[in-house]
Amino acid sequence: MEFFKSIFLLTTLSSLLSSFSIQAHNVAPSSAPTTSPNTQISFTATTPLLRPKPIATELIPSLPNLPQVATMLSLNIPTLDLSIIDNNIETICSGTDYFTECLLGIIPHFNDFAKEGINPSSVLKMEMATLCDKATETVKEVTTMREHSSTSLVVSGILDTCVENYESLLEDLKDAVRALEIHDLGRLESLVSATLQDIVTCSDSFHERPGVRSPLADGDDLLKKMCSNILAISSSIKFY
């Protein structure tokens, strides 16, 4: 009798285990979270498109103006790659007054000069090339703005002055590049100071006309900061 009870218990237990296994097998896996195509890119270390190194992971939260500066430098924010930022770049840019502008200023021409190694000289070349790009773009914008039918005669006249100053700025930048190539840091700093004055002259032309707001204010501000950074970086270069 005890034998048949044991057989009955074993059969029941086996049936229960089999039923549990079937139910577990049929449970549908939970759906993976989906991301709406309209979700904005968040500048955090977990954003896969950024693929930052650890140093970038620490920096991103401290750069609240990064999206604005990136846009003004015509950098594509969703695909912005900060993986090139390392300790050397952070150290160099920490010596400038405009940290975010310095970091982003290296990106457009990083591959052009990184082969020289990451040092103040190569970073300076990256920054100067980006400044030249932005100034060239500004000249085109100002020329178009000046000739637009909606631009008043007063503003158009001021923009004439700005075009002249930006063209002078571009020439000064070309000379500054040559000065860097021959290690003439004194002339380099003098020329970059002249480019800064070119921008200030354009800005002042608007300030001198009460009630006239400069359509170039934001762009001028960025160019001034880039010039300031270039001067700061150049002061840290030592040629032997």
Rank of each mutant, 00 (worst) to 15 (best):
R209Q: 15
R209E: 11
R209H: 12
R209P: 06
P210N: 09
P210I: 11
P210T: 11
P210S: 12
P210V: 11
G211Q: 00
V212E: 10
V212Q: 13
R213M: 10
R213T: 15
R213F: 14
R213C: 08
S214P: 01
P215G: 12
L216M: 15
L216W: 01
A217D: 13
A217R: 04
A217Y: 14
D218V: 06
D218L: 11
D218E: 09
G219C: 07
G219W: 00
G219K: 07
G219M: 05
D220A: 08
D220E: 14
D220I: 00
D220L: 09
D220W: 02
D220G: 02
D220C: 11
D221H: 06
D221P: 05
D221N: 11
D221E: 13
D221Y: 12
D221W: 04
D221G: 03
L222K: 04
L223G: 09
L223C: 12
K224Q: 09
K224R: 09
K224E: 13
K224C: 15
K224T: 11
K225S: 14
K225R: 15
K225V: 07
K225Q: 15
K225M: 14
K225A: 11
M226Q: 12
M226T: 07
M226S: 04
C227L: 08
C227I: 03
C227F: 03
C227M: 14
S228E: 12
S228M: 02
S228Y: 09
N229V: 05
N229Q: 06
N229H: 06
N229D: 15
I230W: 04
I230M: 12
I230K: 08
L231V: 15
L231I: 13
L231G: 10
L231P: 03
L231W: 09
L231S: 13
A232C: 13
A232D: 13
A232V: 15
A232L: 07
I233T: 07
I233N: 01
I233R: 05
I233G: 00
I233A: 03
I233P: 00
I233V: 14
S234N: 03
S234F: 00
S234V: 02
S235V: 00
S235Q: 13
S235H: 12
S236Q: 13
S236F: 06
S236P: 09
S236K: 09
S236H: 08
I237G: 02
K238S: 04
K238F: 01
K238A: 12
K238T: 10
K238I: 14
F239H: 13
F239P: 05
